[in-house]
Design a protein around this nucleic acid. Structure first.
Lengths: 258, 258
DNA sequence: CGAAGTTATTGGTCTATGCCAATCTGTAGT
DNA sequence: ACTACAGATTGGCATAGACCAATAACTTCG
């Protein structure tokens, strides 16, 4: 796949700032342009995307600096009752790949497995109205013989886990944040690079509190809106009105240049 | 406030496509450039933002067209138990304005009041670590005498509604989508125009199912991540695994040009 | 009539350049 | 010391033009 020059600049810039502390200054646009042998416009395009991703901050007259890491909002959802009827329409799903891979990085923490342990990786493209909607990678820590065949029969991953392997996701935690479409994801979703995405991570646990899945989904931000209805619990202090903050580290962003 | 030329072009473009059906072609970049008396670069910047907002779609070699309206994802949350301890830190809140205004537009539907009916409007800037985090406008349909004074005493809007007026939000529906920072919001949040935001709408109902609030929040997408933990109900068909889709109309986007 | 190749059109990327606006810094004046 | 002013520096906006890549319309050939 062809990689535009501004995207190469972005990647090199990303590598350059990886080791810098938040608040550190990066070279000026004019300096970077001559260093990378390109024009200032191209450098600006690269920087603009890193700003949108929350990796850099710019101040006119002052300079460009490494951004602080993202914050996190925890909404203390409490009690809830089912009152949503399942109206609506069920979209399609295209299986892009399924394999056994070694666990690595963040996945080890979320799935509570040792690095290098064998886990299942299910990559799918979710569609609606025959249009790509989201790119989804599910990681499953358990031993699941014949997963591919059984998944093909059921269609639904959750149903397969439940009916064929007796695994049930009872508790789940979702995180929603914005991200930008990298060239690979953009290609899969049929959109152009740089489009804002809704990046959703889901961790699912069974009744014993053991992790069952860790799924990363990238939804087209220009086509989607998440809706959740819930009951609030007033025994919690300031339920619903307040929110809690914590600092978390940034995920790695732009992929490797080819 | 000064408005860049590309933003004027964007607004005129937005007005131009308001009456067009989805799929309609808009003039070419070169045509628009000469019509608006500007360069192609400027037109491209305007179009790029409209694409990010989901109002236009571009196809190389073919042209630029009016986009389909956004889709909606409904996640059928079901049962839930409180197991989140309220750790963390409570952020600040700056009251920007509070007034009685006539209800109009969407608000009438969500609050179930007649157009023109008097409602309260509470505009706040939410902060964390002394940094602007979100711009929030809460609309309240009930009669609330002395709201401003009592809100100043309590700080929390929810606590004020509960303790002073006996109103309790028991059920709430949140929607989360991406949006871009318009110049006014960007100014308030201290970021630059065009940054992706997490646009959150919350409707709150009391025990009788009567609307209590309709709140619009714009969070900095580069600084936030929403987290919700929930219990899944397996009595619902395909709970958790499937998702439901529906077409909704687009909100109005760019503000007026000045 | 249908398939294959050609050409014009459209958006995608990049360059080079100019001026403006915000910021910072150093210097002169009080 | 302190303030006020005047550059120098930096990012913000815009222009004009060039070439590339994908698409669609047209032409030509079988």
């Amino acid at each position: 796949m062809k990689v535009p020059k501004y995207y190469q600049v972005k990647s090199e810039l990303l590598a350059m700032i990886a080791d810098l502390a938040p608040g550190s200054a990066v070279p000026t646009e004019r300096e970077l342009a001559s260093r990378f042998g390109t024009s200032r416009t191209t450098v600006r395009q690269a920087i603009a995307e890193l700003v949108i991703e929350g990796r850099l901050v710019r101040t006119q007259g002052s300079g460009t600096f490494v951004a602080q890491p993202k914050l996190m909002r925890v909404r203390p959802l409490t009690s809830f009752s089912q009152d949503l009827t399942s109206e609506g329409w069920r979209p399609g799903s295209v299986l892009l790949g399924i394999a056994e891979v070694p666990a690595e990085g963040e996945a080890c923490e979320h799935l509570r497995v040792a690095p290098g342990a064998a886990i299942h990786r299910v990559e799918r493209l979710r569609t609606a109205f025959d249009e790509p909607i989201a790119h989804e990678v599910a990681l499953l820590p358990r031993v699941l013989p014949g997963l591919q065949r059984r998944l093909a029969e059921h269609g639904s991953l959750y149903r397969t886990l439940h009916e064929d392997y007796g695994q049930q996701v009872v508790t789940a935690e979702d995180t929603v944040e914005t991200a930008m479409a990298d060239p690979v994801t953009a290609d899969l979703l049929g959109v152009e690079t740089g489009l804002p995405l809704l990046l959703v991570h889901r961790t699912g646990w069974d009744a014993e509190g053991e992790p069952v899945e860790w799924t990363t989904s990238k939804f087209r931000g220009d086509r989607f809106r998440f809706v959740s209805r819930q009951r609030l619990d007033w025994s919690a202090p300031d339920a619903g009105g307040g929110f809690h903050l914590d600092a978390v580290g940034p995920e790695d962003a732009a992929g490797p240049v080819r």
